[in-house]
Amino acid sequence: MREIRELLVNKIKELLDNGTVDRVIGWKAGEFCYDVTPAIFTKDDSFDDFLFNGFCGANQSKYLIEETKAPGRDEPEKGKILVLLKPCDSYSFNQLIKEHRIDREKVYALGVPSKGMLDVNKLRNMGINGILGIEEDGDMVKVKTLYGDKEVARKDLILDRCRCCKGSKHVAYDELLIPEAEEWEKDTTDRFAEVEKLEQMSAEERFDFWRSQLSKCIRCNACRNVCPACSCRTCVFDNANSGVAAKVNADDFEENMFHIIRAWHVAGRCTDCGECSRVCPQNIPLHLLNRKFIKDMNELYGDFQAGDDTETKGPLTAFTKTDAEPSIVYSRGGDK
């Protein structure tokens, strides 16, 4: 990891120096070493606190909406911004270009490799607490804690979302940091296995499952704020005139509706980046709502991956003569 970070920093400095870009969105540590947040660096900044490790899961695409928008009156025209896209981030990048939210001309996209991002909760579940520092070393992860040093196999810490990863290929970039990155080895899981489990439940069991999950929500809005598909200038939940905002705050059941409405709003545009579940402080498996939609759409309209390119219309906004008839949709799932 250390070598790649060095390679990356050199590349960034080169692009800043030769004027290709005038700033870069990178990552730096937050309160804790595993609490990595995106940050903007310019030529004059020190790169000492620039991080690139297994906790740089944050998808940077969404920040480009703000960074590439037309300058306001009296504001100077900014130069290009460098964005560091992991393979999965590049799907969100494409999707936002498709939706005209990112000005592609103002971005230089550098594809960075990923061997799966890490989940600090998995360390905690192993009983490792008081974490002071984490160092990745090949297949192993060395953890410095208040209670001494621990060593864990890296593969045991991989985020669940990365275990059904879309692959090592970037779907959008101007340049690749490592041109021929190899597919990394992982214990793959079936992306839809959990959704299938939910589908097999009775309507009542499924209702109970979601009630118990969604009632944990504290409405911190982290899922919404991190989601690249949830990028409206004004969210319906923040718009008093929409009539939706007041409703979801009315009682705890209505609040559950927040997540369901959100899943509807991103359906067909969600790239399944999994950021919603990663950032949820209450560990609600929010991505399952989106995946259910993806699975249904794949079955009804053929396989579709949002953000695969910047042109193809999503299945819910494209109309073809072979589309499933509504009656077929009604006959699926649920108790009769």
Partner: peptide
Amino acid sequence: TLCNGCSTCANVCPYGAITY
């Protein structure tokens, strides 16, 4: 003030009534 300019509406418009 609310429009994102995302073109989703234009994509679904069966009459081609929406431009940007």
